[in-house]
Design a protein around this nucleic acid. Structure first.
Lengths: 327, 327
DNA sequence: GTGAAAGCGCTAACAC
DNA sequence: GTGTTAGCGCTTTCAC
């Protein structure tokens, strides 16, 4: 067993309470005794056991971030920023990857129930609005980047509809009228919202919406490739394609560049992941302010954890279209 | 406060000891009482508080994985596999990203000292061999994918020298004699070893080694681009380039494809990350068996944690050259 | 098969 | 300014 607070107290000739006070920078201890204690701690190479502290305080200073999958690059950016922000407040982030399985997700949420973590950020979830609301009554949770209809919990998202609207409007501004979209078919609200934005942009420009111009698949690069294959096989293939993620856009770009069929369509992706700058061609994208999102969600969540009044705001962050070679 | 084991005991008309036994599937409790307890647990929606359990047992069933950075794709693969393996044993993995800073690394290692985690896997480290050895005397740690000279701890790596040797030998087999290398200059042993392999392959084929054919930079895509710029500016530019990571190889490929200068060199990367299949061109690569590495390291580490004899083996996993468009 | 009770390492109320 | 002491929620010996 390790050296405990008791041994420090004994060796330093003070009580455990005093050692604890020094440990927690309690000012009510004289400089002199504090120094003795600190020296003893040093000498004994004492490290406070957080298990004891955690049990006593019923808190762990750890926040769980549930991630859909390792390939979710935007999420990595957000998590990085969450890490940094959390560190400022003395919190740690632990990442759990659900691999898009609701079983995994529930397994991880157990960490809330059994007090292993103080709160959780869901970066994507399979829970229903009801489940989320119920969870939020007892625990500090937040949704990040993916809103869920009918929930009343702290949420940070970008306005997906607006983002898509901006992208498609840019296409239209440059004269495109046959505009394809590569979306996902799993009912994720972010995709649904982006489809809304796509439709609205067409509508506002007096272009008729044609369901055939939307391809719906999964999230992978290969899905992007399939999207291009499908769209380019239409009788009147689109001259511009909007994809709901950068990875999808890259899949589209790869196939488009190789097809040799006529002119390559213009492409805009979504998320503005770092790879956009590196891919060949570089990919235009609707940027979500990952850093700000991470900072915002963690700051608020920690406030919720510390105080007892719960902020349940839905914060919408601004987006930005970044133009690169693909458009 | 939540419902505790005490309340369950009271409600069920048994002692806390019995409830605890049921919780831990201790067979020494009669089916009948067990059922009553289970029903009560259900009824009260009782969730055991792990903080209590952890303190008592002085273990958390959590393993820390220290990651160099979010961009380390092979690491993501390994971690995924670590997750899965750990789950089988009832352990969780928490990921900490050091962003290649030794300060962060030390901060995270505190989790070992303060008992927040039962063990740690370092996927890359700035600690010295001495520090690691010392750490390993008291804590269960393991090195994964990056060995450190002079350490005596559980380690899983691929043979970097061999992997590089294989790649470069393939180039030679196809008639290349001017072979460039894009390496890193930070002294990481994996890079050093790969340079050794590169040299040995040349030597064994009777090709003279020329220091000018090695470019040393960082780990990023841009470093790969710089590597190509440098190598292609040599009086006799290489016809084949071996890069110590896939991201570097992609940077090389991007610049090479765009330069228009003569014929595009053949390229082989390292790690075989998923993006190799998706990049344009697809990238040939030396594959590290990420899944097996993750499984191996976690299985052994958990064994070490549970038993008290420490396996300190250095396990070397086999590599494989995957050929794609870039070679 | 079950219960009483000690104690894991720590913090915080209370007393002095 | 410092010490005493009562737990936080759980597991586990030791009785019975």
């Amino acid at each position: 067993m390790n050296v405990t607070i008791k041994e420090v107290a004994k060796k330093a000739g003070v009580s455990v309470a005093t050692v604890s006070r020094v440990l927690n920078n309690n000012p009510a201890v004289s400089e002199k005794t504090a120094n003795i204690v600190r020296e003893t701690i040093e000498k004994l190479d004492y490290r406070p056991n957080f298990l004891g502290r955690n049990l006593r305080k019923c808190e762990t200073n750890v926040i769980l971030a549930i991630f859909p999958s390792g390939e979710y690059s935007l999420g990595l950016e957000i998590v990085k920023s969450m890490h940094e922000t959390a560190a400022e407040y003395g919190y740690d982030i632990i990442i759990a990857t659900s691999y898009d399985s609701s079983m995994n997700e529930k397994r991880f949420l157990n960490m809330l129930f059994n007090k292993t973590v103080d709160g959780a950020v869901l970066m994507s979830t399979h829970l229903s609005a009801d489940e989320i609301n119920k969870l939020s009554e007892e625990y500090d949770i937040a949704l990040c980047s993916e809103r869920v209809d009918g929930t009343n919990v702290l949420t940070v998202t970008v306005d997906d509809k607006e983002g898509a609207y901006t992208a498609v409007s840019e296409f239209i501004k440059e004269g495109h009228t046959k505009i394809g979209m590569v979306s996902t078919g799993n009912g994720a609200l972010s995709s649904v919202d982006r489809e809304e934005g796509y439709k609205k942009a067409l509508l506002d420009a007096g272009i008729e919406f044609d369901e055939n111009y939307i391809f719906r698949g999964g999230y992978s690069f290969a899905d992007g490739e399939n999207g291009y294959r499908y769209l380019s096989s239409l009788p009147e293939p689109p001259t511009a394609i909007f994809a709901v993620s950068d990875i999808l856009a890259m899949g589209v770009a790869k196939r488009a560049n190789r097809s040799g069929k006529g002119k390559c369509p213009k492409i805009i992706g979504y998320d503005n992941i770092p790879l956009c700058d590196s891919y060949s061609p570089t990919i235009s994208s609707v940027s979500q302010p990952a850093r700000d999102m991470g900072r915002e969600i963690i700051t608020r969540l920690i406030e919720n954890i510390k105080s007892d009044k719960k902020c349940r705001e839905h914060i919408i962050m601004p987006h930005k279209l970044i133009r690169r070679e693909s458009f």
